[in-house]
Amino acid sequence: MRQILTVASKEFHDGLRNRWLISITIIFAILSIGLTYFGGVASGSIGIASLSTTVASLASLAVLLIPLIALLLSYDSFVGEQESGTLLLLLTYPLNTTQLLLGKFLGQGGIIALATILGFGSSALVLYFQLNDNEIIKVFSIFITSAVLLGLSFTAIAYLISLLVTEKSKAAGFALIIWFLFTLAFDLALLALLVGVEQGISQQGLTQLMMLSPADIFRLVNLSGLDSSDINGALAIAIKSSLSQVQLFAILTAWVVLPLTIANIIFKKKKL
């Protein structure tokens, strides 16, 4: 445990030193405060009715940004240390691969999680003080929790990439591909499936397919509670046959644990 914390603290401090925490927090804060205000202005005034619009637009931006940021932060976590030789050195220390992996995850995941909480939390607070509506706290805590899980999931996926390749530049390329596949291509494919398949695909089937992408689970979590008039496309259909929030959160959590576990197995077998 001590070893895990030592690694975590180093990774967290690296995140602070490289201005990751502050820049991600600022991006999220500006984004969410901006959307909250101007989203409201566009529809006349800030009100409870626009809360769903706000969260819907926040979610559709966050679903692109959070994975990208998490991948950027962590793609070179292992391959970078492998290139510089410190990974080999670390493994000659009284430190096993699981401890190193978990330490890094705790440190870098901590950066992502904290930035998400601070960045989006700030706008939640601003909104709450203006409107004094408890609904805001509820909606935003669901949003922030799922956003954190989304970030952690892509951190774990980034580790998978980082452990599978042997060159940093390749890892960067793969990270970009993974980001594109999960956030954009997957949805397009779902839409194509909806339109293309003769009898159409059942709502059940669609929802099940969406579980294959953490980004889509995040969308479902944040849109299923809201008026479906704000949402369109594949999602709207899926939502109507939606799983319960608890189930969605459970699957999203699995999307954190599973890649991390696989990464651990790969790390154990990795040749240096």
């Binding site: 030193r17 510089s84 410190t86």
Partner: peptide, 11 residues
């Protein structure tokens, strides 16, 4: 252990 080519955390 002193590895043959290691560059420590530069930053």
């Amino acid at each position: 252990y002193l590895p043959e080519n290691v560059s420590f955390y530069e930053q």
